[in-house]
Simulated assay, not measured.
Amino acid sequence: MSIEAGSRYQISSTIKGYYNSAESLTVIRNNGITIQFTLAEGKGYGSMPIQHFQYLLKRSELTPMTNKKSLLSQEIQDEQIG
């Protein structure tokens, strides 16, 4: 799973306290070693090693949120192909 800039992740209730009780975070930069992110609702920003981010994903502490715009563009592409 690639972690790209602009990707949004929902923060589980068990670790929200570590992230200023934000509902989600958005990746703003991934340099291959460190992930930089902003928290939803303007609650701050931060960074963490990519290994820790992957650990949180594996434990389901962070879950990817689907982008409605990308879903719509995928549907349009499917219609154009078929």
Results as ranks from 00 to 15, higher is better:
22 A>D: 02
26 T>P: 09
41 E>H: 07
11 I>A: 10
71 L>Y: 03
30 N>R: 15
44 G>P: 01
62 L>D: 05
40 A>E: 11
38 T>A: 14
14 T>G: 01
29 R>G: 11
35 I>V: 03
21 S>F: 11
77 Q>R: 06
58 K>W: 07
72 L>H: 15
22 A>L: 01
39 L>P: 03
33 I>W: 03
70 S>M: 09
33 I>Y: 12
56 L>R: 06
66 T>M: 10
58 K>E: 15
59 R>T: 10
35 I>A: 02
39 L>I: 04
16 K>S: 13
14 T>Y: 01
40 A>S: 15
20 N>P: 08
61 E>W: 12
11 I>S: 09
52 H>V: 08
75 E>M: 05
40 A>V: 08
15 I>C: 00
48 M>K: 01
45 Y>L: 09
24 S>F: 08
45 Y>Q: 13
50 I>W: 11
52 H>C: 07
50 I>M: 08
18 Y>H: 04
65 M>E: 06
52 H>Q: 15
30 N>D: 13
45 Y>V: 05
16 K>P: 02
36 Q>Y: 00
21 S>D: 15
21 S>C: 10
71 L>C: 06
55 Y>K: 14
45 Y>S: 15
15 I>P: 00
69 K>T: 11
43 K>S: 03
41 E>K: 07
79 E>G: 04
73 S>M: 04
42 G>N: 06
61 E>V: 04
77 Q>A: 09
43 K>T: 03
38 T>L: 14
51 Q>S: 15
48 M>Q: 07
12 S>F: 00
32 G>Y: 03
56 L>K: 07
15 I>Q: 01
34 T>R: 05
32 G>V: 02
31 N>L: 02
20 N>K: 09
58 K>T: 11
24 S>V: 15
